Simulated assay, not measured.
Amino acid sequence: MASSGATTLRQQRLGFELRKLRENAGLSSTAAAALVGVNQGHMSRIEAGRYAVSAERVRAFARAYACTDQSLIDALAGMTGRRTRGWWEEYRDILPPNMLDLAETEHHATAMRIASVIHIPGLLQTADHARVLASNVVPPLTPPDVEHRVSYRIKRQAVVYGQRAIPLTAIVHEAALRMGFGGPAVARAQHRHLIEASTRENVSVLVIPFGAGTFPGSGQSIVYCSEVVPQLDTVQLDTYHGSEFLDAHAQLVKYQKVLDLMEACAISPAKSRDLIARIEKET
């Protein structure tokens, strides 16, 4: 068992889930440490996500806690070991940690649902569209930092276009389609890209038209990442101070319902493509 360097959101989540199993079993940290043969300091670091833990150790914890949910145990065991050095690690000293956490969360997701009112979802943006957005943040970024953010955003899109492409449902409000970021040429290219993406088998683009009126979730972008078991799902929200990640059961249920209601307000995929094409011609 060894320290794993910079603590990631995924490591923290594993530690939190192990702590939750322990608490559900009614065991103190000291008692649990004795049962599995680790000292109190190691137990605290494991539950804080600061120590790598093996799959065998996770299964030992599960036995000690009398956990019989085999699917959950297998999923937790799959989160173990030293931190996987994914492509996002090359940005560790360049981008804020929560941006790397989002990339890692998306990488391990089995399916995603995204809702956005003002912006085109990042996983469906063109490089030029992403560059316009990165060039207008506060405080302003240097040109090299802008390009780092653009390349990071494009690499994230491997979850949609790569070899292990996952199902993606993107709920986009008509307002996002009409914002015209970057001017007509950039906007038209973004519209065409969105139409092309919507024809992929794993991608569904649903547009909420202006005529739909008000709906839940209209004030923020939502990213819902499904995991191999629903207990490990994660919601990411964009805020002015960065990403906020939610994983409590009540929060997951709430945002599932919000996304369901937003999806119900959207028009069909075919009608959505027609609307995007019409807006492109008007741009």
Rank of each mutant, 00 (worst) to 15 (best):
A266H: 08
S135Y: 06
D128M: 03
T110P: 01
N98Q: 15
L35K: 15
I46R: 01
I267S: 06
A158T: 10
Q231E: 15
T110C: 09
V253Q: 14
H193K: 12
A270H: 07
V253W: 02
D247E: 11
A111M: 10
S221L: 11
A270V: 13
S135N: 05
L261G: 01
V223R: 06
I279Q: 09
I171S: 04
V207L: 02
D233L: 09
P209I: 04
P209F: 04
F245D: 04
R19S: 13
P184K: 11
T142S: 15
L95P: 10
V228R: 14
A170W: 11
L194D: 05
A32I: 03
Y161Q: 08
D145P: 01
G81D: 03
V132L: 01
S71Q: 15
Q220S: 14
Q125C: 07
T199K: 14
R83N: 12
L76Y: 08
N39I: 00
V228F: 04
D145E: 15
P167F: 09
Q256H: 15
V38Y: 06
S3E: 11
A55I: 02
D274I: 00
A32P: 01
R63Y: 02
R19A: 09
H148D: 15
P209R: 04
D233S: 12
T68I: 06
Q231I: 03
N202P: 06
P269H: 04
E282P: 00
V205E: 07
V203H: 10
R273C: 04
D247V: 00
H148F: 09
T239R: 14
R57N: 00
L100R: 14
M179P: 00
D233C: 02
S151L: 13
Y224D: 11
G78T: 04
T169G: 06
A48N: 13
R164L: 12
L27R: 12
A34R: 15
M179I: 03
I279G: 11
I94Q: 12
V203W: 12
G15V: 00
V53T: 04
E47L: 07
A212S: 15
M99T: 03
E23A: 12
D238G: 09
R59P: 02
Q157E: 02
T169F: 08
G26V: 10
A270F: 03
G26S: 07
V186D: 09
T234G: 03
R273Y: 01
A77D: 05
Y91K: 01
A115V: 00
V58A: 05
A115G: 13
I279E: 11
G49M: 03
R83L: 12
L177Y: 07
Q70K: 13
R156S: 08
L123Q: 09
P269E: 02
L27C: 02
R63D: 13
Y240M: 14
Q231K: 15
A250H: 11
V258C: 05
Y161V: 07
K20Q: 14
E280P: 01
E56Y: 00
D145T: 01
G183P: 05
S54K: 09
E56A: 10
Q125G: 10
R113K: 13
Q11T: 03
G183Y: 08
T283V: 13
L246T: 10
A33C: 09
F245V: 07
A266Y: 11
I154F: 00
S204G: 07
G213H: 03
